[in-house]
Simulated scan of single mutants.
Amino acid sequence: MNGGRLVIRSGSVDISVVDRGGDGPLLVLLHGLAGSARELFPTADALTDAFRVVVVDQRGHGHSTRRPEQLSRAAFVNDIVQVITQFSPDRAATLIGQSMGAHTAFLTAAARPDLVERLVMLEGHVSGSDQPDETARLGAFFDSWPVTFADPEEARSFLGESVLTEAWISDLEPTSEGLRRRFDADVMQRTIEAVHEPRWAEWEALTVPTLAVFAENGMFSAEQKAELIRRRPRTLRADIRDASHDAHLDGFDGWIGVLRDHLVNGRER
């Protein structure tokens, strides 16, 4: 099963998994909202000397089922359970997620600690959101995109220039009408609505060793970062300087340094 893109059936949904290789214990990488496995390939390839690394397109994203009926957090968790049990039936895995992917990874570790050896959350949180219109704004933003772009330059002109834009552009799907995004706006809105529910009870009861990684210029305030650690004091924390919420893209060297120190070299940072 080593190498290439595979499809795992999770209920009525196809989950696309890219196996980047390696011969160590299983490590599963999870992207954020409206992202895909592709943006985490460089992270995966930096860790294959120590792990067997697979990268998942979560439901509603990438090459996985685009319009799944179920978008609950439990459905996302079950998908990752299926991935772990298929790729590593005899040993627990390490989960690494960014943003929404961190939330999925955390809930998987909380629900199935027998399957998760270690957890790393990049720019993830469990407090939810107290801004009721935030999900609607996100949905409206994605819905404002043209159905297709003629070429990458047109996409760049519409979306602007940033590391996140480049990740979106590199993942556009070629069609006979042009380049199309690999997700639907309403699915993204429904997905993030579930992420925005507070999950403090699961966080405080979490038994899996956990590293929370934050970016200096990320999404969360100093108070939010501190609260995550205060409410689960055994959580390790690392910070990446001069990086944004998408630190796996614009703070790559710092991000990989944190991961290697924590997962490969066994140092706390």
Score class of each variant (00 low, 15 high):
residue 2 N to Y: 11
residue 3 G to F: 07
residue 4 G to I: 01
residue 11 G to K: 08
residue 15 I to M: 03
residue 20 R to Q: 14
residue 21 G to V: 06
residue 22 G to Q: 09
residue 23 D to S: 15
residue 26 L to S: 00
residue 27 L to H: 03
residue 31 H to N: 03
residue 32 G to P: 05
residue 32 G to W: 08
residue 39 E to M: 14
residue 39 E to R: 13
residue 44 A to M: 04
residue 44 A to F: 09
residue 45 D to R: 15
residue 50 A to Y: 01
residue 50 A to P: 10
residue 51 F to E: 12
residue 56 V to M: 06
residue 56 V to G: 03
residue 59 R to K: 09
residue 60 G to T: 05
residue 61 H to R: 09
residue 62 G to T: 06
residue 65 T to K: 05
residue 66 R to N: 00
residue 67 R to M: 08
residue 68 P to N: 04
residue 68 P to T: 00
residue 68 P to E: 00
residue 69 E to I: 02
residue 69 E to G: 14
residue 71 L to Y: 12
residue 72 S to H: 03
residue 74 A to H: 07
residue 76 F to D: 08
residue 79 D to S: 05
residue 81 V to F: 02
residue 83 V to K: 05
residue 84 I to N: 07
residue 88 S to N: 07
residue 88 S to E: 02
residue 92 A to E: 04
residue 92 A to R: 04
residue 94 T to D: 08
residue 96 I to M: 10
residue 99 S to Y: 01
residue 104 T to S: 07
residue 108 T to Q: 01
residue 108 T to K: 06
residue 112 R to E: 13
residue 115 L to Q: 02
residue 116 V to P: 02
residue 118 R to C: 06
residue 118 R to H: 04
residue 123 E to L: 10
residue 124 G to P: 05
residue 125 H to Y: 11
residue 125 H to I: 10
residue 126 V to I: 13
residue 126 V to T: 03
residue 133 D to I: 13
residue 134 E to G: 09
residue 138 L to T: 15
residue 140 A to G: 09
residue 141 F to P: 03
residue 142 F to Q: 12
residue 143 D to W: 07
residue 144 S to F: 12
residue 145 W to P: 03
residue 147 V to Y: 15
residue 148 T to W: 00
residue 151 D to R: 02
residue 151 D to P: 01
residue 159 L to W: 14
residue 160 G to W: 09
residue 161 E to Y: 10
residue 161 E to I: 09
residue 161 E to Q: 15
residue 162 S to V: 10
residue 162 S to E: 11
residue 163 V to R: 11
residue 167 A to R: 02
residue 169 I to G: 05
residue 170 S to D: 14
residue 172 L to S: 03
residue 175 T to K: 06
residue 176 S to H: 13
residue 177 E to N: 07
residue 182 R to Y: 03
residue 191 T to A: 14
residue 196 H to C: 07
residue 196 H to D: 13
residue 197 E to L: 14
residue 198 P to L: 00
residue 200 W to K: 00
residue 204 E to P: 00
residue 204 E to N: 02
residue 205 A to S: 10
residue 205 A to K: 12
residue 207 T to K: 13
residue 208 V to H: 05
residue 209 P to A: 01
residue 211 L to E: 00
residue 215 A to N: 08
residue 221 S to H: 03
residue 222 A to E: 14
residue 224 Q to D: 11
residue 225 K to L: 12
residue 227 E to W: 02
residue 227 E to K: 06
residue 236 L to N: 14
residue 239 D to L: 13
residue 241 R to Q: 14
residue 242 D to G: 11
residue 243 A to K: 12
residue 245 H to D: 02
residue 246 D to L: 13
residue 246 D to K: 12
residue 247 A to G: 10
residue 248 H to P: 10
residue 249 L to T: 05
residue 250 D to T: 14
residue 253 D to Y: 12
residue 255 W to H: 13
residue 259 L to W: 09
residue 261 D to Y: 02
residue 261 D to E: 07
residue 263 L to A: 09
residue 263 L to S: 03
residue 264 V to A: 05
residue 266 G to M: 11
residue 266 G to S: 04
residue 267 R to D: 14
residue 269 R to Q: 15
